[in-house]
């Protein structure tokens, strides 16, 4: 493929591709729009539950939460730019939380019926642990949540509604941050010597590559490993995120989908040199393998980590995720002409 070789020699891939523009258009905006839509829908359903409590309304509210979680899972790979600003990442998803801060704060808020936590505007000024999905999950699924159907827990319901509203507001801000005309979007989609925070296509590619690998490592280290423990005797399913709603694996598989979609949106397979053109496909294969393994887990997250069969699948998914992360930092980065230094890669 002589043309491809000339192309790749004459113009460094990183300076040529428009990965940032493609990612903004085909992945970031749709992903954050979906987050906004599902958060607003959850706010609406929880609002309906608060107004007219019933078992059916609670089921609908929980159903809306179950739509919101994968929307977040997908979008959360974009952990740079607007999501890194204003602590938005932590505010939507306060995790990892090894000391159980969210649980303590949410329980105290519900017990104390802190009225200021029932408006999303006020909530945005409070602890990140109270603002996002773990807090909302406890409100909808934690101990005492079944009473929401009977209307005996009006405060808890309004608090949950405010959390969903807050997530929708943050999603609005994320969409605004990714809209045309912001400094961030300008630099990300059309990097130039005078744009900030990216001054070249290579810097944009570096950001994307870093986001892909960081998300994969986060999934494994922060979400799966703590629950797996050193051995099956030390497995603690309740250390996994969103175990109460049994959405742990829905979250993780959506995160894998986000990694896949971000890679596809970047379109790297069409711009990297032929001799390394297998790299994106190999990474996507690993991501698909991990997803299939997790899809095969058929018992609840609280039990799965200590169940021999399910545990094997989770461990296998974890190793595959790690391998994909390593292939991204090593092989994909190299294929894109990004030389990631031994020291720069993983400083200490």
């Amino acid at each position: 493929m002589r043309v491809a070789l000339i192309f790749s020699c004459a113009v460094p891939a990183a300076a040529q591709d428009g990965a940032g523009a493609r990612v903004a258009e085909t992945f970031a905006r749709p992903a954050f729009a979906e987050l906004q839509k599902t958060a607003a829908a959850a706010e609406l359903e929880i609002g309906a539950l608060c107004t007219m409590p019933s078992a059916e309304a609670l089921t609908k509210a929980r159903g809306a939460f179950a739509e919101l979680v994968p929307a977040w899972g997908k979008a959360s790979v974009l952990r740079f730019g607007p999501l890194a600003d204003e602590h938005r990442m932590e505010r939507i998803y306060f995790w990892p939380d090894p000391r159980g801060i969210a649980l303590r704060q949410v329980q105290a808020t519900i017990a104390g019926e802190d009225e200021s936590a029932t408006s999303s505007e006020n909530l945005a000024q409070k602890s990140a642990a109270l603002q996002g999905l773990p807090a909302l999950e406890f409100a909808l699924y934690g101990s005492g949540a079944d009473d929401l159907a009977g209307g005996a827990t009006a405060y808890r319901c309004r608090f949950a509604e405010a959390i969903a509203g807050n997530i929708a507001s943050i999603a609005d801000e994320l969409l605004a941050g990714w809209a045309d005309g912001t400094d961030f979007t300008g630099a990300f989609t059309a990097p130039a010597a005078d744009t900030e925070p990216y001054r070249s296509a290579g810097e944009v590619d570096s950001e994307i590559v870093r986001a892909l690998s960081t998300q994969l490592r986060f999934m494994h280290e922060a979400q799966l490993l703590p629950a797996l423990g050193a051995d099956i005797g030390k497995a603690r399913g309740k250390r996994a995120p969103l175990w109460r709603s049994e959405l742990t694996f829905a979250l993780v598989t959506a995160q894998l989908d986000g990694v896949r979609d971000l890679m596809n949106a970047a379109g790297y397979e069409s711009i990297i040199p032929e001799e390394t053109s297998w790299v994106p496909g190999a990474i996507l294969f690993e991501i698909g393998t991990a997803r299939a393994a997790l899809d095969g887990v058929e018992i609840t997250p609280a039990d799965a980590f200590a169940d021999e069969t399910a545990r094997d699948k989770i461990e296998f998914a974890g190793l595959t995720i790690e391998s994909a992360a390593a292939n991204i930092t090593e092989k994909l980065a190299a294929a894109l002409g990004l030389i990631v230094g031994f020291n720069a890669l993983d400083g200490d």
Partner: peptide
Amino acid sequence: THPDYGGQKLNLD
């Protein structure tokens, strides 16, 4: 940090 959480930073806030 805690080895159970790999390289994740647990108290940035």
